[in-house]
Design a protein around this nucleic acid. Structure first.
Length: 936
RNA sequence: GGGCGGUUAGCUCAGUGGGAGAGCACUUCCUUGACAUGGAAGGGGUCACAGGUUCAAAUCCUGUACCGCCCA
């Protein structure tokens, strides 16, 4: 028995358990061994994470696709898992240590700290997984993976070594984006350029032997300590006479050449720029062109590092001012800036200070101001690897939906820079590189391989005697000690996105040749937000194309893309369009929405709002609205049950006889086609809209209302068929709605079968409707007439202020035989829904009656003495005006010879029909007005 | 500076060449035996602006304005 309220909080956990108990989400179910595979890999949420609205949208859309394809009979694998999220997770655990006043990571040491992170992961790492289940995600949880699993780590090492050997991973000393708060390098993508109000200091640098100055402008005066030159544009009329002279760096005394370089834009600042190759990306390039020294003046926390800094001191004569500058050793960059500006001012070397807007690089994790910093890091040669990825998208082997994202993809890929993959943190995949005492690098998949290579090298150059080498090689313990003590493993770990880039194949078991890899790769679709196209999608394309190949009969191995379709969805914003953020306090928590309105309501809201290419402005009110939709459906099912509508095995939609039933079958088929086509096109909003309208505005508003007389009437063939048809249509609704609202539909699927024959499957495993051959235009025309008649009567009632409770008689005047026949068939239905006392026929319209024109018939409500004749005349006149406007518009078209000549035949024909209809209607209205006049 | 997107009802937004739509909000009415988390009816729009293409433009093209995002 269906309760009179739907309680999502009670139902959802029970339903989810039923799915899991039945293994409904398991890939490779035996009965689907021959089915077409369908695979989506989840964008792995961070283990630190908890479900936010972006996850809710992302996973709702994936779940819709997976449930849809599963019902279409495919063998679906939705591959779940989590990401170790190096920097983010390390930060969480470090913060926890601090809060609990426990030893810091540095204090406890690398091994103990990593152990600690694993403990934390074991304890709280599955929070997000539990939350995804609450959303209803139909992942195959038996295959859950973690980017630092043994298997996935093996894939990481294998890829690193292979790319290293191919020359596509290399180590290089160059400027990187350095985060001084996290004390690690980060990649270009993790840098945000933030426009900031600041000051532009114009500093006078004395020119040697002239008593004059060259003025340079900078927003970062403290970096002057690392200056090695001043540059002037070679065609700068005003300043080019300085080229070749020598400037002397204030506060330090370093002699610096004034060089010619086009980088010094004559229009900007003073036209002369200070060159600090160790602390600015542009200056680094200038320095390279002019073979300048690099003077690094910061330590890894961006504090001044001057004492015993040979680069800083080189060529600088001792002086009192130098000593005062050296006293700034250890000052943070901002404190140093203040001191340096003070001293320059005191020395009269500040020409002026301007207010300015400039961009400051910030780390996306820490928010810290980043420093260009000269370090050794590992890089992926992305340019080479990008080429096949670009080609694959050009050749449409991978398709972006919506397609405009391809431009973004190309734009970035064609200008791609080397990818810095090493991070100076501990939580992550430690780089499989070892260094010998001579600096020689050994990279291999296992420590034993490294030891073997190293021994070969060091015996070869006679650092180690062959005998000793043999001894080490033959003893596991000595090998380990050799690797640890003689060699030294790189301390750094890989960028989190390195392992994520392998996700589509590493989760399927690569590098092993697993059956899953063979069956589910390449995956079908990838669903993600545009913010990680570069971070993730592009890199999966690069890695996938490099490592994955497919055998094709009679052909060479072919490189294969990791996914056929990339669906890019929008960002979820708050109701005002602002990005949700904790600091703004405008976050709508998906779990709160689920608690309050149910997971189905949240899911449906997100799907209904997921129009391609537009952000979602979410509000609780919308969720509430779709909760009401779930309630509506629930009550429709309850109504069906109360009226004995149950699945009837004898019923066949193709053989229904009753017009009303043929009509709802026709409408169901139409809705089914719409929903199917929309999901196939990734138009989730259209699919949601189609099923919503069908359930509410067709099935509930009209069908259930119309069949009430049948269901409450005498038993018989019509009643039997109607009960079966109502149940049939409801079942089809449950199927079509299931991908969007899995919980309430599954529950109704179960409950509604309590009185009929048992269901063969859970709804999640049942079949997607196909409705071929169920269209019925005749039924549509007939019920359309009934609907129009009822609507017209209701309209006029309200318009003429006739109380709803007053039953009215209806007279059909001069009705056609078809109308008489239809009226006879539907009088009971029309009387009920239009609240009529009775329906009769007459040759002429009675005097003083309200007159309605419905599809060419005149329906009259005789209310002589009751109706306000003036109001009725006004109403009819207004209708006439509307009719005239229609006619005018259509005739304007039809009188245009070019239109008749050039527009498609069916369009012209359609306009003619419209005109004829409108003219006939106009005639009836004129007649009605005439009669009204006569009755006055 | 380069690129992308947006501008349609009071609000949030659908709508890819042929009669301007939805949800919410608003107004009026209704305890009609599934549902008031509901039902019925209704008001409300120069589709940002200016040109162009076309028999026909919210829709295609060009430009302008404003808003947003990405990249440098």
């Amino acid at each position: 028995m269906i309760e009179n309220r739907y309680h999502p909080a009670e139902v959802e956990p029970r339903i989810y358990k039923a799915w899991e108990d039945a293994g409904a989400f398991r890939a490779g179910r035996p009965e689907r061994a021959k089915a077409q595979p369908y695979c989506i890999v989840i964008p792995p949420p961070n283990v630190t994470g908890s479900l936010h609205m972006g996850h809710a949208l992302n996973n709702t859309l994936q779940d819709i696709l997976c449930r849809f394809e599963r019902m279409r009979g495919k063998d679906v694998l939705w591959q779940p898992g989590t990401d170790h999220a190096g920097i983010a997770t390390q930060a969480v655990v470090e913060r926890q240590l601090m809060e609990r006043q426990q030893p810091s990571s540095r204090a406890m040491g690398r091994e103990a700290f990593i152990k600690r992170v694993w403990e934390w992961k074991a304890e709280s790492g599955d929070t997000i997984i539990r939350q995804l289940k609450r959303l209803g995600a139909s992942c195959d949880w038996s295959r859950e993976r973690f980017t630092m699993d043994e298997g996935l780590s093996r894939a990481v090492v294998k890829v690193f070594v292979a790319l290293y050997r191919a020359g596509l991973i290399y180590k290089d000393k160059r400027l990187v984006n350095w985060d001084p708060s996290l004390k690690t390098a980060i990649s270009d993508l993790e840098v945000h350029q933030v426009e900031t109000r600041g000051q532009l200091w114009h500093i006078k640098y004395p020119i040697e032997g002239s008593g004059g100055f060259v003025v340079v402008a900078t927003t970062r005066p403290e970096t002057m300590l690392g200056d090695v030159a001043v540059a002037v544009h070679p065609e700068n009329e005003k300043l080019r006479h300085l080229i070749g002279k020598t400037a002397v760096l204030p506060l330090v005394g370093r002699r610096m050449p004034i060089i010619a370089d086009t980088y010094a834009d004559p229009e900007k600042g003073t036209g002369a720029v200070k060159i600090t190759p160790a602390h600015d990306f542009n200056d680094f390039e200038v320095g390279r062109r002019h073979n300048l020294r690099l003077v690094n003046i910061f330590d890894d926390e961006a504090a001044l590092d001057l004492k015993d800094n040979a680069d800083f001191l080189e060529g600088v004569p001792p002086s009192a001012q130098l000593d005062r500058t050296l006293a700034l050793h250890g000052f943070d960059r901002l404190a140093a800036r203040k001191k340096i500006v003070e001293r320059l001012e005191a020395a009269g070397l500040i020409d002026k200070i301007e207010q300015t807007l400039h961009v400051v690089p910030q780390g996306d994790r820490s928010g810290a101001v980043l420093e260009p910093f000269l370090t050794d890091q590992w890089y992926v040669e992305a340019k080479t690897m990008a080429r096949p990825a670009i080609e694959a998208v050009r050749e449409r082997k991978t398709v972006f939906v919506p397609p405009q994202w391809e431009a973004t993809f190309f734009n970035w890929m064609e200008n791609i820079q080397p990818w810095c993959i090493s991070r100076q943190i501990w939580w992550g995949h430690q780089i499989p590189a070892w260094y010998g005492p001579d600096g020689k690098i050994f990279v291999a998949e296992t420590e034993d391989d490294v030891v073997a290579e190293a021994l070969a090298h060091y015996t070869d150059i006679e650092e180690i005697s062959p005998d000793e080498g043999d001894d080490i090689a033959s003893d596991p313990e000595r090998r380990a000690r050799f690797a640890r003590d003689y060699l030294h493993r790189d301390d750094d770990v890989l960028d989190t996105w390195f392992s994520s880039a392998l996700w589509p194949f590493s989760t399927l078991g690569w590098p092993d040749h697993t059956p899953e890899l063979k069956r589910y790769y390449p995956t079908s679709a990838l669903v993600t937000g545009f913010d990680i196209i570069f971070f993730w999608v592009a890199r999966m394309m690069m890695m996938g194309l490099h490592f994955m190949q497919q055998e094709r009969p009679g052909a060479a191995l072919e490189k294969v893309v990791p996914f056929h379709t990339v669906y890019i969805h929008a960002l979820v914003r708050d109701a005002a369009g602002a990005k949700m953020s904790k600091s703004k306090g405008n976050v709508i928590d998906p779990l709160e929405m689920i608690d309050e309105y149910g997971a189905d309501a949240l899911r449906f809201t997100l799907a209904a709002m997921a129009a391609q290419g537009r952000d979602i402005k979410l509000s609780a009110q919308r969720v509430e609205g779709y909760r009401n939709f779930a309630t509506k459906l629930w009550n429709a099912a309850r109504f069906a049950e109360i009226n004995g509508c149950a699945h009837d095995p004898d019923f066949s939609a193709h053989e229904a006889k009753e017009t009303l039933n043929r009509w709802i079958i026709h409408e169901t088929a139409k809705a089914g086609r719409e929903v199917t086509a929309a999901i196939e096109a990734y138009k989730f909003n259209e699919a949601a809209g189609a099923i919503y309208r069908f359930v509410w505005n067709v099935y509930c508003d009209w069908y259930l209302e119309l069949v009430k007389p049948v269901l409450t009437g005498p038993d018989g063939a019509a009643k039997k068929e109607t009960r079966a048809a109502a149940a049939w249509a409801l079942d089809e609704i449950l199927r079509l709605l299931h991908p969007f609202m899995p919980f309430v539909t599954e529950e109704l699927w179960r409950v509604s079968a309590e009185r009929g024959p048992q269901r063969r499957h859970l709804l999640a495993l049942d079949t997607w409707p196909s409705h071929d051959g169920l269209d019925d235009e005749a039924a549509e025309a007939e019920i359309g007439w009934v609907v129009d008649l009822i609507t017209a009567i209701r309209s006029v009632r309200v318009e003429m202020n006739i109380p709803a409770a007053t039953p009215l008689p209806l007279v059909l005047a001069g009705a056609s035989p078809q109308t008489v026949e239809r009226t006879r068939r539907w009088s009971e239905f029309v009387q009920r829904l239009a609240r009529l006392s009775d329906i009769s026929f007459a040759d002429a319209v009675p005097k003083g009656a309200l007159q309605l024109v419905v599809r060419g018939d005149v329906a009259a409500l005789p209310l002589a003495g009751i109706i306000d004749l003036a109001a009725e005349r006004a109403r009819l006149t207004k209708e006439l005006a509307k009719c005239d406007a229609d006619i005018a518009r259509v005739e304007q078209k039809l009188n245009n010879a070019d239109f008749v000549k050039r527009a498609p035949e069916d369009v012209v024909e359609g306009e003619r029909e419209k005109r004829d209809e409108a003219l006939a209607r106009k005639q009836k209205i004129i007649e009605a007005l005439q009669r009204l006049k006569e009755s006055e």
